[in-house]
């Protein structure tokens, strides 16, 4: 137990939110159809959850979803100009 002299005056948040796996919120899972992808990276650009990463755009790498954090909002699938992202219903594990 810390005394009042030892604790900071205001609480400080210093743990990165990656500790919170918001992927558990998801009902619909975005799945990429690689043949249709034209590497425009619009999905990466729109993702509000920073759950899509692009390794190297110069070498036309495919966008990668981090399903630990993807909340399944469907923005990527909606914005995709080639309909290369399919929203699939999550099945109970």
């Amino acid at each position: 137990m810390k005394t009042y002299q030892e604790i900071t005056i205001t609480p400080i948040n210093n743990v990165d939110s990656r500790a919170v796996k918001t992927g558990a919120w998801r009902t619909w899972r975005p799945v990429l159809i690689p043949e249709k992808c034209i590497h425009c990276y619009k999905c990466w650009k729109v993702c509000p959850d920073v759950a899509i990463s692009v390794e190297s755009p110069e070498e036309k790498s495919l966008p990668v979803w981090d399903y630990d954090y993807c909340k399944g909002c469907g923005l990527c699938a909606f914005e995709c100009p080639k309909d290369a992202i399919e929203m699939q219903r999550e099945v109970d594990q």
Binding site: P48, V50, D68, Y69, G72, L75
Partner: peptide
């Protein structure tokens, strides 16, 4: 900005 925040879906 890190992932894992509390924003709603499509915020």
């Amino acid at each position: 900005m890190s992932p894992g925040h509390m924003g709603c879906q499509g915020c």
